[in-house]
Write a protein that binds this DNA or RNA. Structure first.
Lengths: 341, 341
DNA sequence: AAGCTTTCCGCAAAGCTTTGCATTAATGAT
DNA sequence: ATCATTAATGCAAAGCTTTGCGGAAAGCTT
């Protein structure tokens, strides 16, 4: 039991020399003779010595931990972004400590507090769907704690962020539908407090305008970003006297919910209704029919987020919002057969 | 810049008292007078004091960190298990530090080393698909480092573990297929070094026997547990002179690959070929047709894994393998319409 | 041979917390 | 008034590492 790890002191005692000599020998300090260095290094390897990060952290006032708060861990989108963040973090000798807000603003605040208590050097956050106030983020800013946000962001002038080209992508979806012959294009959005909701909504409007379509407020539904609530939103759309012939959802979970509801209603995708999603690559391929979607390069996004974080950490703050180009990948779900109509 | 966190020393200086008094006051030590306690606590809250976990860790020789190594982060199965682990960890005041082996034995070893360097108090591991040696785990055991494995396990007599009732579940799948009228039942397994491969294979054999079916080695394929390699395995099965009328895969990724290959071959699920998977709940519902599958209660599994870990951590070792009951949930993908045959 | 420069190593402080022991002041006892 | 308790607080060490500075020994110069 007890201390499973050996320390400089242990090595020093065994060699009958001082701790400082051991420390210097291990890092090739010029003050130490060659033979001494060799002797020390040999024993260190033999005893499997690794420096104690707690002691180092205490001394250097750095923990090399970076805190991540995401709405959930199990959505592929976040998991993949985390993966990207982690890859860059590891390169820089940092650990990613991950916490989930479970889409709750209370847990979001708790998680942030806990991570700060654990002395992470900074935070990377994607807001929960409930988060409609920003004071907890402002506090971080005023305490000068490095913070980077992504996807669902806020306070763009005070907090560096990485987001997708949401409005553009959204507009392209509408235009894509139009080019495929769809005319009554519906959109299922998320809570209005979220930046992605606003941005994608404005792209939706711009798309309609660009195509010369008349906006119909009945074709816009909000949902709670869950599979079930997306299904319900879709059902409401299907019950309209004049239902849509195309629909797209604000993220992958929503897109799956839409598809499910359409199938359960006995309608065919893409002929009765075209569907497009905002998703990551993987899931678009797994579902049937393969989903036309705006795919985020999630892993790369994660890497960029981490890079922005380290930039903030080392060279100090500067307002900066990185916009990641998404791509509209055409698959089956929006490929209406002309003949049928 | 500098120290964003304040320490006992800061509080002591401000109140003109000693550090020990501050420390004792904050934890209601009887030696400290009531007024002093109040004064100290008030300032501590005002200044937002939180104890420095590095200093505590150094003193108490505990980091309250638990290391997790999984084959990847983006698969829902692992993400969900991690979620479960984390929930219990948090309850016990522990942090989960997560590392991915990316299905590589080298990265698995690296991750373990890194986590140990970071002074996690113990490890929870699911082996990579490449892992065919166990010496790195034996070393952990001999160094008396708490270790719990799950899903893909080894050294059952030395390492506590949580696994599914793999053989049973596998047998039930075969019997389910049989009861639905399928007769040429294929199985796509994973690398033979993995425990899940072995166990599920033995269940497959037992199932065939129980149903009075003659085993046909051609109906057993191995794959590399990726979407693509599963597709390839399925294609090999479809090219057989006497192809299967039912197939199941060792995990969810594989099941999706099987489905994809079948669809691409222009065959219908479940009428031409029945499909069953080992998956978690979520994905079985998202795909089309909804996938009959042995669903793992992943979140609960994670919780049990964490509980076993803490048991090991506090009350010492005892050989123990928890077997989690899975459930075969019938959905569309194995529901052959009798009429067609 | 005495003084000076190198070469090599050890001391001690700092970073933060806990805790056994010592210290001080005050209270009570006689 | 003096001694013995009790109450309240401070000192210092330990846990581990880094690093400026001081010190000892050896080699060199003159």
């Amino acid at each position: 039991m007890g201390s499973r790890h050996i320390s400089l002191k242990d090595l020093a005692r065994e060699l009958n020399i001082s701790i400082s000599t051991v420390s210097r020998a291990l890092k090739d300090h010029p003050d130490i003779s060659r033979e001494m260095k060799e002797k020390v290094k040999k024993l260190a390897i033999e005893r499997n010595y690794t420096p104690n990060p707690l002691a180092m952290g205490l001394l250097k006032q750095e923990t090399r931990m970076i805190g991540i708060v995401v709405p959930d861990l199990v959505t592929h989108f976040y998991a993949s972004i985390i993966s990207g963040i982690e890859s860059v973090a590891k390169e820089n000798g940092y650990f990613a400590v991950i916490a989930s807000s479970n889409e709750s603003i209370i847990k979001e605040k708790e998680s942030i507090d806990n991570l700060l208590k654990a002395r992470v050097e900074g935070l990377i956050v994607c807001m929960s769907r409930e988060t409609n106030t920003t004071d907890h983020f402002e506090k971080l800013v005023s305490r000068d704690i490095p913070l980077v946000m992504f996807d669902r962001v806020c306070l763009g002038d005070k907090i560096p962020a990485v987001i997708a080209d949401n409005a553009d992508a959204s507009q392209k979806i509408v235009e894509h539908f139009y080019s495929k012959g769809y005319r009554r294009i519906a959109y299922v959005s998320g809570p209005e407090n979220l930046s992605i909701s606003k941005e994608r909504m404005s792209g939706y409007r711009a798309g309609l305008k660009a195509c010369g379509l008349t906006p119909d407020e009945n074709l816009v539904e909000n949902c709670y970003l869950t599979f079930e609530s997306a299904k319900m939103a879709m059902n409401r759309l299907l019950e309209l006297p004049n239902p849509p012939d195309a629909v797209y959802g604000i993220n992958d979970t929503v897109a799956f919910g839409l598809m499910k509801a359409i199938k359960e209603a006995g309608l065919k995708i893409p002929d009765d209704i075209g569907v497009v999603g905002f998703t990551d690559e993987f899931h678009s391929v797994v579902v049937t029919p393969a989903l036309t979607s705006v795919t985020h390069p999630t892993f790369e996004m994660g890497q960029q987020i981490a890079q922005l974080f380290f930039k903030r950490l080392t060279t100090g703050f500067q307002a900066e919002t990185l916009i990641v180009k998404t791509q509209l990948v055409e698959r089956e779900s929006s490929n209406k057969s002309e003949g049928r109509h």
